[in-house]
Design a protein around this nucleic acid. Sequence first.
DNA 1: ACGACCGTGCCACCACGTGGCACGGTTTGC
DNA 2: GCAAACCGTGCCACGTGGTGGCACGGTCGT
Lengths: 266, 266
Amino acid sequence: MTGATLRSDRSDVNHMRSVSVALGVLEAVSERQPVGVSELSRAMQLPKSTAQRMLLTLGELGWIRASPEEPTRWSLTTKAQAIGSRHRGQEEIRHIALPAMHGLSATTGETVHLSVPEDRRIVLLDKIEGEHPVRTHTEVGRSAPLHTTASGKAVLAAMPPAQAAALLGAAPLEALTDHTDTDVEAILQELEGVRRHGYAVAVGTRHPDVAAVGAAILSEPGQPVATLSLSLPSQRFPRRLWPVYGEQVARAAAECSRQLGWDPLP
Amino acid sequence: MTGATLRSDRSDVNHMRSVSVALGVLEAVSERQPVGVSELSRAMQLPKSTAQRMLLTLGELGWIRASPEEPTRWSLTTKAQAIGSRHRGQEEIRHIALPAMHGLSATTGETVHLSVPEDRRIVLLDKIEGEHPVRTHTEVGRSAPLHTTASGKAVLAAMPPAQAAALLGAAPLEALTDHTDTDVEAILQELEGVRRHGYAVAVGTRHPDVAAVGAAILSEPGQPVATLSLSLPSQRFPRRLWPVYGEQVARAAAECSRQLGWDPLP
DNA sequence: ACGACCGTGCCACCACGTGGCACGGTTTGC
DNA sequence: GCAAACCGTGCCACGTGGTGGCACGGTCGT
């Protein structure tokens, strides 16, 4: 929720103040809809009149709308989603991956994630929630550093080693928990194991109680374009299950790769 | 879609010019990504320097990014999608409807649509493409007037008759094809048939060669919140198939309604 | 070698967005 | 019952932030 993108802006306030504020408002509305003027102005530390002008403007432009019952509280329209769903290549990948995701969901009963790499992070594109009464909580659109997730490691293992090393070395690695490995050398070595097994495992590296198994989906020249993964509580994931789930995920991901036109031979 | 905003949008220019332009740019980028500065400035009839400032700003704010290979052409990031996927209630509906959609897709082989009503229009929320080599082309996020689609008629038939009449009478009904019915009385009468059968059929009312069958998904107080529909070429949809597909769609929609807590007894 | 593109950068001007403030209505507290 | 504290709304003088014309260097196609 709030902790995802720490307000690390403040450095580049030089460009387009009003636009920056407007998009911030749009984001804030999406997080706490339906929301009123005052609540919003407090949350964003904005003058109330400014906040209202933003809401009115975004409303006129068709991005948000007042609820029919509560005409002073605003929510998103489908416009933002319409824009977002045009994200390049997303449609094709989703279409191909969904059946495989349902298969994994059916055989394991756990939450299945479809993610894509973006810069030095991995972004959750879609998910199918598991049936267990206790599950991991995630949100479509959220992202995490590559080295903190199973999906991220699967991606790193599937790209050219030099590129993986460059990505990991570009900036100091963040530790999200005590179990997050932040040593580049150690991670690069772990990636060899991932390549050997065909899947990556992460236990408590992003959140103390959450574990995951992931495998990369490869496209044309053998490059990773997405990942499939299972996300589940660490308690429900003893080491003996690693290869069980791991191989299922790897098989599902390979099937997606094949449909994308990339046949992993060896 | 060049003709959208001709130079003189004069009515609402009073509010937040730069924001309006920025969101317009965002939308334009989503439609023609990856796109460069000059192409964009031409398409939006904007000074090149302004267009570039917008792109840089949107980039700094994380909504778009330059392609790694072509550093001067911009595409969307997943941010817009992250925002859009928080659209109220969408997540729950998608989660419930997806299995039913796959069922329909498997038994019919046709493209399955999940749509939601918004104002006087019906918006495509998600879809599963069929297997036929010739299919209807649609895009998630696109919308159409209620009275031009099977989904829209299913929604109208499921809401209180007074509300349906109010929606239809609020403004003159647009005719998208020769087959679009624009007479309010005639449509209201057709809705009775929809209620009796449990599904709506539309042939050539939105596009000459496209047909559809749809049924509404109802939530708590019996109100329509979404629809399931099949979209297919008219040629592949002879009248004898109407009840076949119609009842399948209605059954799938009813199952979704039940999971939303609304049991259609009578 | 030329012109027609491209993406980039600068900067004087003044429209545009800003935000403090006040109003009327409704909910809360006592 | 009243007052205080909220709410959403609207106004408007101020000055800053956005505008867009213009020019530059690079890279095509011819």
